[in-house]
Design a protein around this nucleic acid. Sequence first.
DNA 1: GTTTTTATTGAAAACGTTTGCATGAAATGA
DNA 2: TCATTTCATGCAAACGTTTTCAATAAAAAC
Lengths: 342, 342
Amino acid sequence: MTLKDIAQELGVSISTVSRVINQKGAHVANKDIQDRIWEIVRQTGYIPSSAARCLKRGAEIKEKNRVIACLYAREPIGNIDSPFFSRMSRSIEEEALHYGYIVKYFFTASDLDNVEKLGVLYDSNVEGLIILGRHNLETIRKMRRFFNKNIIYVGLNPPVDAKYDCILCDGYQIGVDATSYLIKLGHKNIAYIGETKNEVRFDGFVNSLEKSGFAANKDYIVSTMPYAENGYQSLKKLLSLDCRPTAVFCMNDKIAMGAIRAAQDMHVRIPRELSIIGVDDTESSKYLIPKLTTVHVPIDELGAMATKMLYDRLEKGHQINIKMYLPFYIIERESCAKCLNG
Amino acid sequence: MTLKDIAQELGVSISTVSRVINQKGAHVANKDIQDRIWEIVRQTGYIPSSAARCLKRGAEIKEKNRVIACLYAREPIGNIDSPFFSRMSRSIEEEALHYGYIVKYFFTASDLDNVEKLGVLYDSNVEGLIILGRHNLETIRKMRRFFNKNIIYVGLNPPVDAKYDCILCDGYQIGVDATSYLIKLGHKNIAYIGETKNEVRFDGFVNSLEKSGFAANKDYIVSTMPYAENGYQSLKKLLSLDCRPTAVFCMNDKIAMGAIRAAQDMHVRIPRELSIIGVDDTESSKYLIPKLTTVHVPIDELGAMATKMLYDRLEKGHQINIKMYLPFYIIERESCAKCLNG
DNA sequence: GTTTTTATTGAAAACGTTTGCATGAAATGA
DNA sequence: TCATTTCATGCAAACGTTTTCAATAAAAAC
């Protein structure tokens, strides 16, 4: 079904139909014809070809097509497997719908090396982009080059050196706060499980420790991937040390979940003998035994705010290099306690 | 940058450039010109406008554009929050990439009422569709009507009455097997937590029970949403009954996770006093305390097979109404045991 | 009754491709 | 040498829109 079909059916010109459908002003066609056109549109479920529209409108996109895209970095944190991913998508999509936008999704390696994908992304008819996770900057540059017409984008949990508008939780501060929380409980031998390279949570951990006069003990730092199994294995390793840590900062809840199970298997009681703190406040975390003390990061709000920010940019204009921090807080549940052998 | 630009730059015709770029056979242009064309393409990063391409190719899509889409039903099981979702996406995408396909994602209410979305989907340049979850059939029909050029699609975990090619795990049989597993352990008072309406796992549960001569006790059936919190509340309710069940079939692992925590809070020991079985074999399930006995459903394989099936259809032709069942199996871990007070 | 304004409509060009057809040149075969 | 085949290339139409321009008819103003 095309404009032409409708036009023929009614014996009017294509232009008339087009004008009616796009409703430019009131004086677009005689009321009777308008009605008949809409009737056909409704009956046949006619949808204008966006291919044709895009083509025609070309560079000067006057009329918005109201499509934005989400570009997820696949590795390793913005991982599609992560609970982050699903909740984020949901909140983004809901917020977008609220503004009348459609969301398209793309998943990419963080280096966006896949040219084919870039191509698809390029002419996918999107006006704006939410770039999720730690793409490296060269990626972003490459992407901009593709969009010679200025593409509007907003980062969400971007890499530290991001130069574009973004919205994030201060990962460094999360590291600091979680660690000093453990320190305040009297712990001195604090371990870390998680990624370390380019991971600001880890930086926060180290600095917080140093500021309190504790050297970060190398044996207590386990550099590993952010999954449950890694948490499990890592804690087992830590617990087999001669001098066990009394507390562990797990970089995310999945690791923490694995760690809790490892402690159980090695008959180490939590929190009596070992305190564990995670990050994310995953749905699961409050059903674990013991319930996990963790840092709540406002995933839903992050998604919603990023979408809102993108929306504002789309209406107003271009990047202005703002970094917006959303607050986080520690949720005390059952997995942390005062250090006994202090 | 367009074909025209390239053509002008080299003083050849647009057709020549187009032909070179699309490489129809060897005898397409003089070698020298070919080289110069490719040189410019590389230098300028030219990408053909898919808008124009789509428009031109229109109905007779001869050349494939190698794009498929995933249509997720949002409610309630194919929920975007579910671990299903993320793992499924990953396996689908990996398999698709393997065939050189790009995946686009769409999330929809299960009734696909959102016309705008249908519109986007319609001309999103896709060749094939993986329809995930329990869309109702009217939805599918509506969709087909939109795609007057026959759209190829494959269902994944479709509703029971699906009339199209699909791939699935036999939910009914899962219900039967899980239940008879519990029966074999000597349990008679078996409860069910989860969805009941149109839920074949539940049907399997009921029938298995009846076949063994136990009536399904109404008090033991808690109809609820498939989330951890619901599992938590539901089990609490069950445990406050005068005559407690000795085993619970949780419709998925999330519910089971909540249930485990509820048992813990009410000082009911698992599996000594209560056996719990879940379904899904989520990443979490083997880190719970106790480790969850659950039905492993091959999520990754489901995704991969659906993609492969779609791929085959795309190459070969149309729907032939096959239902392909993938095997599942029970993973015995720690949350189920013989019934003691039997 | 003429002129001006306004409302309604259609023709046609343009967006960037792809492709059938035509053409001319070069190469092959006799 | 001429007839044929093969190769290289361009022209032009088509895909479904949007939009400018011009044309007509009707209404309003004089």
